[in-house]
Structure formats: C-alpha cells, structure tokens
Design a protein around this nucleic acid. Structure first.
Length: 264
DNA sequence: ATGACAGTTCCAAACTGA
C-alpha cells in the first residue's frame, strides 16, 4: 500500500540544528516536512544540504526569530501562499502554504503569546483569528488539506504532564483553547488525538528542570485534516528519539501517514 | 515571584521562546 508521510518539526534554529534535522530526515524519510522557528534569514537556509539528501524546499525566513519552511522529497512543492491573508504588513514569518504529492499543506508557527495578559497575547489571539478565517476557506475543499505546525496551544489538561506551573501561561489560557476549539469545530480533525484519544502524547519538553528526563511534556504541535483528507489517515506519531539526541530541539517531530490510494 | 536552558545577535548582554 502506498503511503504518504507528512511531518511537522519546530527545529528551534535551523543552523544550530542542521545535523539533527538531516539525521532525522534520513532516518524517517517523511515525504513532506513542515519546519518552524528557522531563526535565520533566507540566505542562511541550508537549501543545498537538503537537496543533497533528496529534499526540495520552500522557505520564509526572518532574522533571529520565527521562520517557516516546507520540505518535499522526490517532488517540487508548488507555492500557494506566503503569509496569512490580512497580515501583509506583518514582518513575522509564520505561514507558508504549498501543494505537493497531491495534498495542500499549510505550515504554521502560531505566536507564543507570553507574557499574558499583554500585547504579545493580543497578537497571538489576533493571529489566531486570521488563521481561523483562512482555514474556513480551506476546510470544505474537495482537495485534501492539512494544517500542520506549532500551534502554541495545549488543547486540554490531558495534553500536559501537569498544569500547576503553567496556569498563567499563554499556551493554556481559555482564550487560546477557545480559538483552537473554534478551528476544530469548522470540521478539522486533530490527527493524533483522533487516533489515540486515551494516550498521553507530548511533542515538546522544555530545556529547564530536566523535563525531558522526567517526560514532563506538552502537546502543542498539531496536524489538522480537512474532511476530504480524513478518510486517508492511517497512522500518526511523535519521533521522540529526536528529542533525546545531543543538541536537540525542545520539540520532537510529529507526523501522520496517509493512505494515498484513498486520495482523489 | 523568580529562574531554570538554549539560540540569536553589529561578539556579548539582552532578547525571545514555551
């Protein structure tokens, strides 16, 4: 059976993380990989290193912060959109959309929003509203669509090891969660939670307080499927081994496998 | 309440992240 593997990975600095990124791509061989937090301008994007292992790339960098990319194996991605509608004057590089292997892929890096309350939290919610508006135009498409990325939202208390030290954090605020629920209610499927409703699943473990060693994680990297794509969903998971490597990102790659025979 | 760690930047103290 032919399958298509699509992953999302917040690399936390693509230059510092290049050896880890290449090792992951070579071992897991996703067909499409959405990257976030490049933390580099476009001239530092390692396009040639990725081509050398079979990946074509689209990227939208920015100095120091943010930055997103879409990598595609054995095909050229077709760029569809650079930035969300309504954010044309916004210098923050957080959204890239492309068609590849028969799927429309939105790669997003939602603002963190801390500290809250404050202007950064307001920016997070405003950005979320733009995403919700744009997602509404994609949700009902006859074309298969996935919205993959670092949403910076812990959807429920089941998606975190313990809420105690996070109650004031922007990732757990009712407003952040309400936006995420409103997005799902358009008709999107949270792939990992759909397949594993009763499992503790984490995609991020912060660098502090030995959170990785204690498995004190958060689930904040999500892949959302529109109704056209949902019947193709076959499997999903987190490549947690990547988080255990030397010089790891604080996020682990999160992925879905699709049965492409059911596409179209 | 703070800071624990990590990456970035006019190269080093300050910022952002989650």
């Amino acid at each position: 059976m032919k399958t298509l593997k699509i992953a999302t990975f917040n690399v936390n600095g693509i230059r510092a993380r290049l050896p880890n990124l290449l090792a992951w791509l070579e071992r897991e061989r996703p067909d499409i990989a959405c990257l976030q937090e490049l933390k580099a301008v476009d001239r530092y994007f390692p396009k040639a290193d990725l081509e050398a292992i079979g990946y074509a790339s689209l990227f939208m960098g920015q100095a120091s912060w943010n930055g997103v990319a879409i990598l595609v194996r054995d095909a050229e991605p077709l760029e569809v959109r650079r930035g969300l509608p309504g954010t044309e004057g916004d210098p923050q590089s957080r959204y890239l959309e492309a068609a590849a292997h028969g799927v429309l892929v939105g790669c997003l890096y939602l603002p963190n929003g801390n500290p809250q309350p404050g202007p950064k939290f307001d920016y997070k919610l405003a950005w979320f509203e733009r995403l919700i508006e744009h997602a509404a135009t994609l949700q009902g498409s006859d074309h298969p669509v996935v919205l993959a990325g670092d949403y910076n939202v812990v959807p429920t208390d089941f998606d975190i090891y313990n809420t105690r030290s996070w109650l004031k954090d922007a990732l757990l605020q009712p407003q952040s969660r309400e936006c995420y629920q409103r997005l799902l209610q358009q008709g999107w499927t949270d792939a990992l939670r759909h397949l594993y409703p009763n499992d503790r699943i984490y995609t991020f473990w912060d660098y502090f307080r030995q959170h990785w060693q204690k498995n004190a994680g958060l689930r904040i990297d999500h892949l959302l499927l529109n109704p056209t794509l949902k019947p193709c969903l076959k499997n999903a998971g987190v490549d947690a081994w990547v988080r255990n490597e030397a010089h790891a990102s604080d996020h682990a790659p999160t992925w879905i496998e699709l049965n492409t025979r059911k596409l179209k």
